[in-house]
């Protein structure tokens, strides 16, 4: 066992959005067992928090768990120390991506495409989003991906959940972009209040 190194914990407390909330964790484990995705996670939220304290930078920022959170809020509602677990997990995911860790490539990819589309037209066009998402890895991967979901796509179409024509931009797209730009700028300053 190496000596105790608090530098990563300090890095998280100071730089990750909501990172200092981790200090409140008393390691009860209620988040882990409340999480619908805990069985898919390599580390439960509780384990992530204790790994941060233990200085395991690579293990934390490379963990699938920090990008698997679906914001269901069960852990956050139950946390006896009122830690905003979801914000912490998203903060860690963002921090990981900024520092060239890509714990889940497809999740990061989807998130990026989703954000791009919101910025471009102010709303989500499922057809366009899934096309861009599936083809991000090349044409062959794209066709494979689309075929895998063709059944769902067809049924959504038959139930009129997908419109045949492309979605148009929202009316106030210029104002929305201004807001998003400003939010991005505030985040750059470390403001977690965005």
């Amino acid at each position: 066992m190496g000596s105790y190194d608090p530098s990563f914990a300090k890095e998280v407390f100071e730089n990750v959005d909501f990172g200092d909330e981790i200090k409140m964790c008393m390691q009860c484990g209620v988040c882990a067992a409340s999480c619908p995705l805990s069985l898919q996670m390599d580390h439960s939220p509780r384990q992530i928090f204790t790994l941060i304290r233990a200085g395991k930078r690579e293990e934390v920022l490379g963990s699938q768990a920090i990008m698997l959170c679906t914001s269901c809020y069960t852990c956050e509602v139950r946390c006896p120390r009122k830690i905003p677990v979801i914000d912490v997990m998203h903060g860690l995911a963002n921090y990981a991506l900024k520092h060239d860790f890509v714990p889940r490539k497809d999740t990061a990819n989807f998130g990026g495409k989703f954000w791009d589309q919101i910025y471009r037209i102010g709303r989500i066009d499922e057809k366009d989003l899934s096309r861009r998402y599936f083809f991000a890895e090349g044409i062959i991967e794209g066709i494979k991906g689309l075929l895998g979901f063709s059944d769902i796509g067809l049924r959504l179409f038959l139930h009129k959940r997908i419109k045949p024509l492309p979605e148009r931009k929202i009316k106030g797209i210029i104002s929305l972009r201004k807001m998003l730009d400003k939010a991005e700028k505030m985040r750059g300053r470390g403001g977690a209040s965005v």
Binding site: G29, V30, A32, A33, S34, S38, S44, P80
Partner: peptide, 19 residues
């Protein structure tokens, strides 16, 4: 800290989930 209890309606047994 146990996070969930579910009941088997037939036997009344209780399943506890936690980490």
């Amino acid at each position: 800290k146990i996070a969930n209890i579910t009941e088997d309606e037939e036997t009344g047994a209780l399943m506890l989930e936690g980490e």
